[in-house]
Design a protein around this nucleic acid. Structure first.
Lengths: 321, 321
DNA sequence: CTGTTAGCGCCTTCAT
DNA sequence: ATGAAGGCGCTAACAG
């Protein structure tokens, strides 16, 4: 049959014309499922993130999608809400679809391992739960957190609160390490009591955690909120209490999202270039798919974050909080 | 073969056990492509939006995804950046995938028509370009815009600028109509020169358009920005000029995104409940898929928006702008 | 009750 | 240079 035409092969000009005309007339498009079945290779890539409503993840996904689309792939996007069982459910679905690759902000190592063992290329984005399996594209969390913390120390702050949600993933662990590293380098002892761990995953919880920290440590002169959601909660609590930023308290964040440059004072933060993080993740995956089957090594990219100094950080003053 | 086990059918307990054990051991998952080919029905739904980085669309997509996932479907998400040719490209891909349905924030009627003619269920979300084909889940744009405009008129404003990007889609057209309707109802003549049309699709362009409006009409006492991106640009320009809100100028927006409640003053706006808009779009599609093939009528939902009065709107004062 | 078979649409190979 | 056939993995129907 003249199906050969649609791709490559030999055909008489007359026949070709006739077939193409018919194709156009009825709007025929080859069945991708049949093609996948036959070729044992799909153009769908599984993408698994924590929360599409968080602009950090939305930007990441947007970067991934852009790059995939350009390369002729498409993105099957699943939100796992940071829950391991939702993540595994999605993994199973990706396996069923026989996707050639998956990009995910991983929750459990099991998800990554399962995919890898089924021969699916995996890119861990933003954080890494498995050192054994899959490539990774990460932000340099320790370097980033060290930068902001040093910025605060350089301004003269000595009592710096840290609001952080979790420290088991590489992202949180790195930021915590950076906070410590900067103190160490400056010869300033880090006070563990100034670290509000498990500050929660929504602004309300983060606000409460920030409030507790401020209550228990009136000598705090600065707060570093370790991601955009935490920063939102922290700022809301600070505004609610009528604490003046940066006069009474400096505030620094991680992740640069639009509101941080819109509020007054604008927020000093560390930009992770989240869209680029997504683009690079996709690139790593696409490169991996392009190369043959050999498992030669593991690619791990660490994208350098950038300190964006704005108006929410200033030298400490005598502050009657 | 005992594949029947995986679904329904009869099988001896012993055989079943053995098969299930093997399945678990090698981690076998049935091939969704083969299943789709055989059953001529896929569990993938195409979702086509303008811009994942715009929180309005991100929320919409999040709502869609949540509902689809709950129902056992998954979302193939494509960004068309508002470009008709990207939209058609995605439509072709969805056709190739033999998706049973597509949810899109449409750009061109051709996309909707093509899908419909190929027997694919279509839900137009947020705006409608085709009255003939496909269901639609929309915000009541005219009602929403009339609410904010009336709010401003009630406060005593008589010279209200409108910053809007386009008025050909139902969303823009509705908001423009609401602006006019409120003036009409209040017996206040609407001045066409106060309407900045084609204000652009990014904050920078919107800021410039707002600036021009302010320059040309020093008697403006309020500005209504017809979506969140326009509002961002308008606010940035207003801040840049050091114009005091709401003392010198009231600002109202459309779409409620997080920064609007974080900036000071917080922004009066119309919430479209964008996540719900997505959820309902998915529900309409799923219901349509559940019912048989008959084309009985067209479902059009108009979700009522909500006026959220905050601090950026106040009665006009003598304003030395 | 269980094993076999046909065919979904595509693409590659082989035969004309 | 073109037509025919087989098989990817699945499931519904049928034969045993």
């Amino acid at each position: 049959m003249s199906r050969v035409l649609s791709g490559n092969g030999y055909a008489a000009a007359a026949v070709r014309e006739r077939v193409l005309a018919a194709v156009r007339r009825i709007g025929y498009v080859p069945d991708a499922n049949a093609r996948t079945l036959r070729n044992r290779s799909s153009r769908s890539i599984g993408v698994l993130i924590s929360d599409l409503r968080d602009p950090f993840y939305a930007d990441l996904a947007a970067g991934v999608e852009q790059e995939l689309r350009t390369a002729g792939y498409h993105m099957v996007l699943v939100n796992d809400n940071g829950q391991a069982h939702e993540e595994m459910r999605a993994v199973t679905e990706f396996l069923a679809m026989r996707v050639p690759g998956v990009i995910l902000t991983p929750v459990s190592a099991r998800a990554v391992k399962t995919l890898h063992q089924q021969g699916i290329r995996v890119v861990q984005a933003d954080r890494r739960v498995s050192r054994r399996y899959g490539d990774a594209v990460l932000g340099a969390n320790e370097a980033g957190a060290e930068m902001v913390t040093r910025h605060l120390l350089d301004l003269g702050h000595r009592r710096i609160g840290l609001v952080i949600d979790e420290t088991r993933w590489t992202s949180g662990a790195g930021r915590l390490a950076g906070y410590h590293a900067a103190h160490q380098a400056a010869g300033v002892p880090a006070d563990e009591r100034l670290i509000a761990r498990n500050a929660g995953f929504d602004p309300e919880a983060a606000g409460k955690a920030t409030g507790r920290l401020l209550d228990e440590h009136p000598d705090l002169t600065a707060v570093f909120a370790a991601n955009n959601v935490l920063a939102q909660g922290a700022l809301q609590e600070i505004q609610r209490r009528g604490v003046a930023v940066p006069r009474q308290l400096s505030l620094a964040a991680y992740d640069d999202v639009p509101w941080m440059s819109m509020v007054r004072p604008s927020i000093t933060t560390v930009s992770q270039h989240s869209v680029e993080l997504g683009r690079r993740s996709a690139r790593v995956l696409l490169d991996r798919l392009a190369e043959g089957d050999p498992d030669r090594g593991t690619t791990v990219l660490n994208l350098e974050p950038e300190l964006v100094v704005r108006s929410s950080t200033a030298p400490p003053t005598r502050n009657p909080r």
